[in-house]
Simulated assay, not measured.
Amino acid sequence: MSPAAAPPATAAGPLTVALRLVADRIPRLRIQEGRISEQDTKRILITPAVEALGWDILDIDKVRNEYRHNSADNPVDYALFLNRSPVLFVEAKPLGHSLNDRKWIVQTINYANAAGVDWCVLTNGAEWRIYI
């Protein structure tokens, strides 16, 4: 018995289609050679991916941008909520920037720890690193 072939794109579910569209933008954007800002990365790659994963980006009770758990905290790029409690933080960096910088990893984890959030993500739109 031969292995099953991957389903054609037309048979893909809405999540797969949406994430494929986001992924298809990456090569074109990489040609920009450093001219893609963090804000552009969030708008073009990250926000559509968060939305494709089922989060209602227009509902303030579900997704907040530049969220501060306490007024003295530095803001995290995205806070995702369930039952009005933050459950996942997403920290964005510009497309093309390496996520290996320990400063960014520590920053992301510290944001989550300060708010008591168990899950956090560090992403440049092309690579997503999940920390628990």
Rank of each mutant, 00 (worst) to 15 (best):
Gly13Ile: 09
Val50Tyr: 01
Thr10Ala: 15
Val63Phe: 03
Ala23Ser: 09
Asp61Arg: 13
Gln32Pro: 02
Arg28Phe: 11
Glu38Ala: 11
Ile60Pro: 04
Ala92Ser: 11
Glu38Lys: 12
Val76Leu: 03
Tyr78Cys: 02
Lys42Val: 02
Pro8Thr: 14
Asp77Val: 05
Pro14Lys: 12
Phe89Pro: 02
Trp55Ile: 04
Asn74His: 15
Ala79His: 04
Tyr67Gly: 02
Gly54Ala: 12
Ile36Asp: 07
Pro7Ser: 10
Leu82Phe: 11
Ser85Gly: 07
Ala79Val: 05
Asn74Ala: 15
Trp55Lys: 04
Arg20Ala: 12
Ile60Leu: 05
Phe89Arg: 02
Tyr78Ala: 03
Ala79Asn: 04
Trp55Asn: 04
Ile57Arg: 01
Glu33Arg: 14
Ala49Asn: 08
Thr10Glu: 12
Tyr67Leu: 00
Asp77Thr: 09
Ala18Lys: 03
Pro86Glu: 09
Pro8His: 12
Gly54Ser: 08
Asp56Leu: 11
Pro86Lys: 14
Ala49Glu: 06
Trp55His: 07
Ala79Glu: 03
Ser37Phe: 07
Leu19Asn: 05
Gln39Thr: 06
Val76Asn: 00
Leu58Ile: 00
Ile57Val: 14
Leu80Trp: 05
Glu38Gly: 10
Ser71Asp: 13
Glu91Asn: 12
Phe89Cys: 04
Pro14Val: 12
Asp56Phe: 06
Ala11Asp: 14
Arg84Lys: 15
Arg20Gln: 07
Thr10Leu: 07
Asp77Phe: 05
Leu15His: 12
Leu80Ser: 09
Tyr67Val: 00
Ile31Thr: 07
Thr10Arg: 15
Tyr78Gln: 01
Arg25Phe: 03
Asp59Val: 09
Arg64Ile: 00
Asn65Ile: 01
Ala79Cys: 08
Pro86Met: 12
Val17Pro: 02
Pro86Gln: 15
Asp40Gly: 01
Gly54Trp: 04
Arg25Asn: 06
Ala52Glu: 00
Ala23Phe: 07
Asp61Thr: 13
